[in-house]
Structures are given as structure tokens and as C-alpha cells.
Design a protein around this nucleic acid. Sequence first.
DNA 1: ACAATCTTTTGACAAAAGTCAAAATCGACT
DNA 2: AGTCGATTTTGACTTTTGTCAAAAGATTGT
Lengths: 187, 187
Amino acid sequence: MNITNWSIDKYGLTEEDIKHTMDSYVSQTIKANNFFLKEGEICNYIGYVTKGLLRSYFYDDQANEITTNFFPEGSLIIAMDSFNNRVPSKEFIEAIEDTELSVVSYQRQMDLYKLVPAWNQICKDLGDIKIHEMLKRNESFQTLSATERYQKFCDEYPQLLQRVNLGYIASYIGVDNATLSRIRKKK
Amino acid sequence: MNITNWSIDKYGLTEEDIKHTMDSYVSQTIKANNFFLKEGEICNYIGYVTKGLLRSYFYDDQANEITTNFFPEGSLIIAMDSFNNRVPSKEFIEAIEDTELSVVSYQRQMDLYKLVPAWNQICKDLGDIKIHEMLKRNESFQTLSATERYQKFCDEYPQLLQRVNLGYIASYIGVDNATLSRIRKKK
DNA sequence: ACAATCTTTTGACAAAAGTCAAAATCGACT
DNA sequence: AGTCGATTTTGACTTTTGTCAAAAGATTGT
């Protein structure tokens, strides 16, 4: 979602609300292969991706990288657990491409809740959206085969297919690298 | 979580807060095989399970019942999507055993947000917990085999093993009925 | 341009999980 | 206690997915 367009209508933000909000966000750029957040760090920023692409991942007990999310342009990055609860992140969030973001610090966001009360509702709604996404994702694992999950991924994120390593997609949909390669070959 | 014990310390609820809250909740009983919520209905209640057991499920495109959650004593039932966004539920929530709940209606809960502001924070935290649970669940699907997912289920919900049909567990962990039976046999 | 490195594909095989149908077991109800 | 229906197990078989290692193909930096 784009802060400037997206929220104004829906939440009836005033000129002042918007000014407060805009003043809270600052630009940041991250080069490919650099990190927005590393494992062990407490996430101090929410990021809105204006350009580029990132992914989040962690290491499982066999030290495989498991990709948990992609963040293309238009995505909002919040490491919910770490940001909200001020605990070290278990995930890395890494730029796959050179990336530009608008970020707001934890403290500034807390201020924003008071300055612009509509932000409480916005964040509640964002939480709802997140929960909805995750329910869908779980459904996929409960009901679909690897091939179907890949098909669904292609339908939902066609832009990503050209932009990310297949290995990232493989772990994202929960299949082995070689298996994904074979799934792609037939058809 | 238990409303009376659990929230007081953490959120510093006053006598009055507690009174408002208690007054908002009413008792309800649901006999085994009856519904807390049906597909297509808008969820009008949050329920706190004091006794018994329920599960939520939906039908996939091959008309299989897919169990998405269990709600034993101490669980809070919120059909997030339906309750928060006032849209028809895609899930059924059914009592597996004779069940007793404390419920609060949508309207009363909305009032409670105003009457007892701490409820905003409580619900935010509940959302966080929900998100955390779902992240864990996704991780299981991304990184564990069926056998490992079953093992994890046993570790996490030992009380449920004796109380629910294996078929419910099978769909919950995303394996075929017969496969689960075989997983259980060896070891 | 060309190593050096990373990704992806492929082959041969093994293990895991699904399918379908029948049998065994369990449970609820009269 | 006995019957009906639902649940669970089992057998025989197929399909899907994983594993490991090597080859082929891309990509990056100098």
C-alpha cells in the first residue's frame, strides 16, 4: 500500500495527519545483498518499498535457508514479532535487488499513534491483512501438492518469477530445489 | 487465556474495568456436533472456552473437510476475518465435545474498547500471538516432513490426541488419513 | 574476456506420501 | 447386548517428492 494515496480516503486523514505522517518517514536505500534486518537484531523500522525487492529468510536446523516472504515494490516490511515485541529477530531481511524504501523508526511510529490516531486503525487493518495472507498460505500447504503450490505462486506473483532465484521460491513453497526444477520442466 | 486472571496484572485493569468486562460476557453451552459458527454466517461473538473442545474447518475443492484449528479449554475463539471485517465466514466452528463458553457480542466488544481502553492493547497483543502461531505453523509446513509434523503436534497438544478423530489431525497437519495411520504404527 | 562462483538441471535411485478398497475396530443408540 | 454407522487400519499399488552428485548454464568481479 502506498501511504500517500491509499490511506487518505479510507481513513479520512486530515492535511495535518498527512504532514505528520510524511515527516515521520525518511528515505533509505539498500544495495542488493545487503540487509534491512539481521537475525539477532531488534527491528527498529517499518519499511515501505518504493523500488526494488527484498526477501526474508531464516535457517532451519539443517542450516538450509528458508525463504518466508518476498517484498517487491509496494510492500510494507514489518518484522511483526521483533518490531512489536522488541525482541531479537529470528529472520534476516535482505535486499535481492538495489532497493529504495521509506522507513519510520519505532519511536516515531509510537509518536504517530498519538499524533494521528487513525494510525491505530491502519495498523489494526494491516494486522488483519497479514493474518488473512497467512491463513491462505496455510491453506495451500494443507490442501495443495507441490505442483499446485508452484502454480499458485506463479499466478499470484508473476513479476517475481523473473526476478528471484528458483531456490528461494522452492523453499518458499516448501519443496526441494531439484523437485521444483522438475515441476517446471513438465509443462 | 483466562480473562479474570490473565489480564489484570499485565494491563493494570481497575475494579471498574473488570466489572465492565465481566458484565459484557455471557455464558453459552454448545452440545457436541453443534456449531458455534457456520459457513456463510457473520461471526457475531468472541468466545472463551471454559469447558469442552471445538474445531474449525472448511471444505476444499474436492469437498474434503480440512480442519484448521482446535479450541480446547482456555482457548479464545475469534473468526478473525468474519468478526473483524463483518463478512461471511468461510469456516465452520463446531463443538467436538459438549462445550461451555463465555461469549461477548460484536457490539458489546466495540463498546468495551471505549469503556475499557486497555482492551485495545489486549486485542493488539492477541493479534500478535495469533500471527506468531501462524508463522510457526507455516514453518512446520516449509521445513518438516509429515512424520515430524505429527510428532510436533503430539508434543504441543498431547491432551488432544485422546480427544479428537485422527482424521481431523490428519487434515490439520496436511496428510492423508491412511498416511497418518501408518505414521502412527511405526513407533 | 575469463576465471571463480553461484544456480539450475539432470540422472539414478530411495524414501515418503497418496489412492482405493476392503477389513477390522470402535461407539452410540435403542 | 446387538446393530448400524463412523472411524481407523491394512494391503497392494502408484505417484510424488527427496537425495546425492555431477554436469550444464549463468553471473560477477577483476
